[in-house]
Simulated assay, not measured.
Amino acid sequence: MLDVPVIDRRPVQRSSGSPVSGRPETGAPPDAEVLRSLFSSTVPGTVGFEEELLLVHRGTWLPAAEAAALIADIGDPRVKPELLAGQIEIATSVHKTVAGAVDELRSCRELLAAGCGSDLAVIAAPVHPLVDGLNALSPTGRAARLRARYGEVIGRQLVSSLQVHLAFGDADCTLSVYHALRDLLPELAALAGAAPFAGGRDTGLCSVRPVIASELPRQGVPPIINSWEEFATDLAWGASVMGSSEWWWELRPHLRYGTLELRVLDVQATTGLTSAIARFVYALAARLAELHRLGTLQSPAPTWRIAENRWAALRDGVRGELLDLRTGESRPTRRCLHDLIDAAEPFAPGGLDDVRAVVDKPPVDHLRTLGPKGVVPWLAEVFTA
């Protein structure tokens, strides 16, 4: 959930091979010139993942607050602690293709599964289906600081997402794609929704994860950023109470790497599902970058309209309807997604039939057939499938 690097311990790959001068590592808010330099100096088309996972006890299938010990035993810098003591994060390196990033993700999942022994298991669950309450925090200074700032709300944030980092190598293009993806956050939330249960009950939502996350500030639909000057001003305004890592919106410009970080996606049960959704996101971003170059992207939609669609997406997933952000026309979410997939497919070598299958047979339906008590053992079984 929080700001742990996606790209090993280096900056995002840059055409010059070196960090941007003045990049914001010291905590001081960057100015607009630094932001433009940072977001213009990445290698376009590179991609990386962060994947948040849960550690559970076999038998009871409840969270196990032992992630730190498991991570220490594995000793791999790509496997990292998270805010909660029962949560683990995988952070991949930079890749030129989604397939390469998925392969690395899969190998890290295998490392975790092998390290668990017979008593523990790791699962990819956006929300633990049997838990609804406070959880132990990791024994870190950062967790203690956030606990002091946000109170017990932090202990309820046992939520896991798949975060995709996208590089464009051009500051203006990055900001244009930011706004275009911002309009499409509800469609992506509907596609990836995989958290119907909390506290042992069906919430009636296809994903309750964003509802839990919204107990914290700066969640959901991000603000319009009219310019890098405006973004620099906003970062400076909030610098006294938060860092840029606490811009927890579902999409954000990432100040350490010069990427767009898409944070709207629920973590997926298998790397096969991750691959299907991430390949679509990557192709969609490439199409939007092309539309930016052609000068045909629309201006950003009002936040409240996107938020209205977002709620419908969280409730109904792909089986609902979304409103056109300009005309208000209601359309089936499935139709919206299929149209986006058709438009993105020219940018996806090998096609996007795998993500069409996700739209037509959403994984949340299978989770509901298992019920809240059956989900966790199934997730443990398919974790490395």
Results as ranks from 00 to 15, higher is better:
Thr271Val: 13
Pro5Val: 06
Ile225Cys: 13
His165Met: 05
Pro126Ser: 05
Leu379Asn: 04
Arg9Met: 10
Ala343Trp: 00
Glu230Val: 05
Ala343Asn: 07
Gly238Arg: 11
Glu229Lys: 10
Arg145Val: 13
Arg109Ala: 05
Ser107Asp: 15
Ser176Met: 04
Ser107Lys: 11
Arg209Asp: 14
Asp360Val: 14
Thr303Trp: 03
Thr97Val: 08
Trp304His: 10
Glu250Ile: 00
Leu55Asn: 09
Pro19Ile: 13
Leu205Ile: 00
Ser138His: 14
Arg287Val: 03
Val127Trp: 01
Arg106Gln: 14
Arg368Ser: 04
Gly243His: 13
Thr327Phe: 04
Leu367Pro: 06
Thr271Phe: 15
Pro11Cys: 07
Pro126Val: 08
Leu370Pro: 04
Arg156Gln: 15
Ala276Met: 10
His57Gln: 07
Thr174Trp: 15
Gly220Met: 08
Val122Arg: 00
Thr174Glu: 14
Glu50Gln: 08
Trp304Gly: 00
Thr270Ala: 01
Leu111Trp: 11
Glu261His: 03
Ala190Met: 03
Ser275Phe: 10
Asp234Ala: 12
Ala343Pro: 03
Ser299Asn: 07
Gln157Lys: 01
Glu290Val: 15
Ala286Phe: 10
Leu322Gln: 09
Leu166Ile: 11
Val122Gln: 01
Arg201Ile: 06
Ala190Phe: 04
Pro372Asn: 02
Val382Lys: 00
Leu62Met: 10
Leu175Arg: 11
Ile90Glu: 04
Ala195Leu: 09
Val159Gly: 02
